[in-house]
Each structure stands twice: as C-alpha cells, then as structure tokens.
Simulated assay, not measured.
Amino acid sequence: MPTCQNCGKKWTWKQTIKTIFRLKCPHCGKKQYESASSRVRSGVFMLIPLIFLPINAWFGFTVGTAFVLAVVLCFIIFGLYPFILKLSNEQEPYW
C-alpha cells in the first residue's frame, strides 16, 4: 500500500481507490505524485489488456464475451493497482 511521503502515514486500499486519480493524502491533504518507478511498473501492468487481444482472436470469443472479460480484467487491474503504487512529494521524470 502507498505511504504518504509528507506525513508518513500508510493509505488503506479503500483510501487509495478513492484518491486514485487525484492522489491527495487523506490524512494531511497534501498532493502526492506517482513515483517514476511506480509509473513504469503500472505501465507494464496496464499492458495486460494488450495480451488479451491475440488470445481473443485465437479463441474466437464473441463480442459480448470479450467485453465481459475486458470489464472483469479492468476491475482486477484497478483492484491490484494500490499494491504497486508508490508515492513521491514531487513529479519525477521517467528517466
């Protein structure tokens, strides 16, 4: 789970999901940023749906089945995202 770099308090899974798009600490209210290493890991994590495309074509899933599987996959990714998120006080470059 992510830890605020300003106040040092650990966020819960629920708090992280609530603030996933604005990343504002629920304890101290300070803006946090996703660290560069976390962005790289989450980028690799978000490539999982691209792996799904050839599997979909190979098995010949119907559009409805593919849509349901994609929605389930998105829920799984967003559910696991707080476990790979690392925070920083300032925006870090990728390199």
Rank of each mutant, 00 (worst) to 15 (best):
residue 74 C to N: 10
residue 10 K to Y: 12
residue 75 F to A: 08
residue 86 K to T: 07
residue 40 V to G: 08
residue 45 F to W: 15
residue 18 K to L: 15
residue 76 I to E: 13
residue 23 L to W: 12
residue 62 T to Y: 03
residue 85 L to M: 10
residue 35 S to I: 14
residue 46 M to L: 12
residue 94 Y to Q: 10
residue 10 K to W: 10
residue 14 K to Q: 14
residue 37 S to A: 07
residue 37 S to V: 08
residue 7 C to R: 00
residue 9 K to W: 01
residue 12 T to L: 05
residue 77 I to T: 07
residue 33 Y to T: 02
residue 61 F to P: 01
residue 58 W to N: 09
residue 39 R to G: 15
residue 41 R to A: 09
residue 42 S to L: 06
residue 29 G to Y: 09
residue 90 E to P: 02
residue 93 P to W: 03
residue 43 G to Y: 13
residue 36 A to R: 11
residue 72 V to A: 10
residue 18 K to C: 10
residue 25 C to P: 03
residue 77 I to M: 15
residue 37 S to H: 12
residue 4 C to N: 02
residue 26 P to N: 00
residue 86 K to H: 08
residue 58 W to Y: 15
residue 83 F to R: 06
residue 27 H to Q: 11
residue 81 Y to D: 13
residue 43 G to I: 07
residue 72 V to N: 05
residue 1 M to S: 05
residue 4 C to A: 01
residue 50 L to R: 03
residue 29 G to W: 09
residue 78 F to W: 14
residue 93 P to M: 01
residue 79 G to M: 12
residue 61 F to E: 01
residue 36 A to G: 11
residue 79 G to E: 13
residue 70 A to K: 00
residue 23 L to S: 01
residue 27 H to D: 15
residue 21 F to Y: 14
residue 46 M to W: 15
residue 44 V to G: 02
residue 74 C to D: 11
residue 7 C to D: 10
residue 82 P to T: 01
residue 28 C to K: 05
residue 88 S to Q: 09
residue 7 C to Y: 09
residue 53 L to D: 06
residue 13 W to A: 02
residue 93 P to G: 03
residue 58 W to L: 14
residue 53 L to Q: 10
residue 32 Q to R: 04
residue 19 T to W: 08
residue 33 Y to S: 00
residue 4 C to Y: 03
residue 13 W to Q: 02
residue 12 T to S: 14
residue 69 L to A: 00
residue 17 I to P: 00
residue 6 N to Y: 13
residue 13 W to I: 08
residue 57 A to N: 14
residue 86 K to Y: 07
residue 54 P to S: 00
residue 92 E to R: 03
residue 77 I to R: 01
residue 18 K to D: 14
residue 18 K to G: 00
residue 92 E to H: 07
residue 50 L to M: 13
residue 93 P to V: 01
residue 57 A to C: 11
residue 4 C to F: 00
residue 80 L to I: 14
residue 90 E to T: 09
residue 66 A to H: 01
residue 66 A to V: 05
residue 40 V to D: 13
residue 15 Q to I: 06
residue 32 Q to E: 13
residue 87 L to C: 04
residue 51 I to V: 14
residue 15 Q to F: 10
residue 2 P to Y: 03
residue 51 I to Q: 07
residue 89 N to Q: 15
residue 87 L to Q: 11
residue 94 Y to V: 10
residue 22 R to I: 15
residue 31 K to I: 08
residue 84 I to L: 15
residue 85 L to R: 08
residue 85 L to Y: 06
residue 38 S to H: 13
residue 61 F to C: 02
residue 7 C to F: 05
residue 31 K to F: 06
residue 10 K to F: 06
